[in-house]
Design a protein around this nucleic acid. Sequence first.
DNA 1: GCCAACGTTGGC
DNA 2: GCCAACGTTGGC
Length: 151
Amino acid sequence: MRYWLMKSEPDEYSIDDLKRDKKSAWFGVRNYQARNFMRDDMSVGDPVFFYHSSCPEPGIAGICKIASKPLPDKTQFEAGTKYFDPKSTIEKPIWMCVEVAFVKKIELISLAALRDVKALAEMRILQRGNRLSITPVTETEWQYIETKLVK
DNA sequence: GCCAACGTTGGC
DNA sequence: GCCAACGTTGGC
């Protein structure tokens, strides 16, 4: 089992949206590293921190879990949308996604609060210049956050 | 809105 | 394969 952190802009899709939907495809990822995590490294049941980015209060807003094997991201075939990729074909899709299932909403753990914790200094999300929308979380980091910061 | 950092593109 | 130009991310 591996642990993950997945970013979403709450204006686009928030933890409340996932709570309502129970389950959702994590579509729209157009970065190869992030895609490869979904395609190659995730397993059904892996726990995920749901992170709100590009918003007034960025931080971890909830917990969800991986709920499907990798699937072709349908939005890559939708001509005229911002996720359309003309290089992709049904036979050879370029972009993959997974489904995630809601686990719980938590009291927001702000980015500032995460930065305050020495034990989390090495977290990918806190590294300078990090922009990757999906990052692995180590077991140590997960346990620390889960036991000490999640409310 | 600004800007640093990073990824992608495309000419050579 | 190099690298400059450009686009995007995301915190502030």
